[in-house]
Amino acid sequence: MNIFRLAGDMTHLFSVLVLLLKIHTIKSCAGISLKTQELYAIVFATRYLDIFTNYISLYNTIMKLIFLGSSFSIVWYMRRHKIVRRSYDKDQDTFRHYFLMLPCLILALIINEKFTFREVMWTFSLYLEAVAILPQLVLLQRTRNIDNLTGQYVFLLGAYRAFYILNWIYRYFTEEHFVHWITWISGLVQTLLYADFFYYYFQSWKNNVKLELPA
């Protein structure tokens, strides 16, 4: 565990907590894409298949449980909670997210480190995570009116990705044989998707104006 990895995990954790806090306390999920949240739930479910069979550390197990629990409860809130679900921007959140899953699955079947069920599922989760933010970015651009918590949520998610790249660079120089093309390339693609958002986020922060994405 290095400082970049820890910073990445913490920003990831905070992003989820910010989102849950928003949903739980103000009973609103306005501006949040259910499509992206469903994809994250699938990402964690397929990645952590070995949660009870492959013990790494107490830290890892607890974090996995938090990510699984939070992603499924966010989906539950948005779909089932009688007050929260009313604030869902259903008409704006029209991204066909299921269409993202098939190419990711096919790619995972072709390009993987080892052709086993566990490994293909792990790889699938990496590819899917790389594109899972797309419905959320599309929704942000459509709604234009981005509240602070939603902006912070996406910012923290992007920061998590950036820290993970620093973590891989660090591990590459400090650990032997640490070369994982699949993880790195899908992680890099995912981080680049945030570049545009980051640009406007920092502009609004610098000029102290409300965050708004161009149409």
């Binding site: 790494i56 996995k64 480190e113 070369v179 994982h180 993880t183």
Partner: peptide, 10 residues
């Protein structure tokens, strides 16, 4: 092996 290394991440 390399695989286990990458699987220690979240």
């Amino acid at each position: 092996s390399g695989q286990e290394e990458s699987h220690d991440e979240l």
